[in-house]
Design a protein around this nucleic acid. Structure first.
Lengths: 231, 231
DNA sequence: CTTCTCTATTTTGTATACATATACAAAATT
DNA sequence: AATTTTGTATATGTATACAAAATAGAGAAG
């Protein structure tokens, strides 16, 4: 006879890591100036001691979400558009790989599952409900990465969570919902045909178009990122 | 009157991080069974308390060099060939991106600098001095990544240090020094011609050939990685 | 001889304490 | 009045302390 455990005991450092990641990731998306993070304040807010907070912050530091200056604590930096463009360059390659692998080795039911993500949308809907469509968009790419079967790709992808969040700030001004809609379906079609080369090409183009548009709008954004004054 | 400062004080957590990364990275390359890491032991060895050791370990955990099981501490896992192949798939994309960027935006003197890396070798030398050639190989790829101008690419690359180390264990049996020699020079030629498409294609092929050969030898390696017993 | 159980030991997880560097503000000096 | 100096507060960096879980080992039962 087997009984289920009362409760899998959570570990504070992991809880804190998740809590901070969500909280800071969201904040980072709208950030225009560095945000100072005080350990004691965060610890008090979360009801724990500084130790798990510090350990969580080390992980976030390694991910690149926060930066440390010795003896001066952690800071959450706003993501600059140039940094976001760097991420899109990398993302182009990673998504290309994922699309290729899914076309080659994806599960038999992957195509309906991918289509289901966008089932609630037609082209008009994608434009009318941008927030929901953005969520579907995220789900689509996450599913592709997951279905690629490359666990390391998934881990790499996840570790860039803050950049994906930050992207919302830049992307929302681009209004490319309609194009995006068609591009996604083209990628799914290529996967349905089990054509890895075409799937990769389309996935890469999808990201590259986004990157090109974001780069073109570079001038429109504040360049506050360059005004970092480190005394 | 001026006196010289006593000493610029380093930060233990960073020293520990570097020390552990080197030490564990090297060990991981030859590892065939999980290696348990005791915090107190490491702390004593390095002459510090557990705190900086733990913070360093959080960063290494986030990088993927070590894994944690709650209340059971950290373990250094041997890199499996399947995991290494996953890395090579990702690496193919990252190196392709780097080669493209270098061809597009590399400094004026990048070609001689790339050639200088292999200046000491001809084809015979690459075969005769495999250890030195492996080092040159590493330097070449690191220089390409650095010269790409994509800082995030460099950070991503660096965070896979342990897999690059582990690779030595698999690659050394493949003896593809001669092919590698020509492939490198072809990539440099494409960069010299400032042909980004060809540079990317060649860089990707370079890694993919390595991956294919490694995959083909899958059967030769012990599959101890699958015998992980998690009680 | 094997297997199980109970206890002792070890080790991790978290909290707290202390030392030191930075920040800020008031006082002193130019 | 402006600038430097110095005192104090605050926050970080590291060490230690204590509690809880896991491991190991001895002894008992089969």
């Amino acid at each position: 006879m087997s009984i289920s455990p009362i409760a899998a005991r959570p570990y504070l450092r992991d809880e804190v890591y998740t809590a901070l990641k969500v909280r800071l990731g969201v904040r980072a998306a709208g950030l225009t100036a560095p945000l100072r993070l005080r350990e004691e304040e965060l610890a008090a807010e979360l009801g724990v001691s500084r130790t798990p907070v510090r350990e969580a912050m080390r992980r976030l530091e390694q991910e690149g979400l926060i930066t440390f200056r010795p003896r001066r604590g952690a800071r959450l930096m706003p993501t600059s558009l140039p940094e976001y463009l760097e991420w899109l360059s990398i993302r182009e390659m990673l998504e290309g790989l994922a699309a290729r692998e899914v076309a080659l080795n994806g599960a038999a039911d992957i195509v309906p599952r991918l289509r289901a993500v966008f089932a609630d949308f037609d082209e008009a809907g994608a434009l009318a409900r941008p927030a929901e469509y953005a969520a579907a968009n995220t789900a689509f790419h996450a599913l592709m990465i997951k279905e690629s079967g490359n666990a390391l790709l998934g881990k790499t992808w996840d570790s860039f969570g803050h950049l994906k969040m930050a992207g919302l700030r830049f992307i929302e001004r681009l209004n490319r919902g309609s194009q995006s809609f068609h591009e996604h379906h083209d990628i799914i079609d290529a996967i349905a045909e089990r054509d890895p080369d075409r799937a990769e090409t389309l996935a890469r183009r999808h990201v590259r178009l986004l990157r090109d548009q974001a780069a073109a709008s570079l001038k429109e954004f504040d360049l506050h990122e360059k005004n970092e004054t480190t005394p």
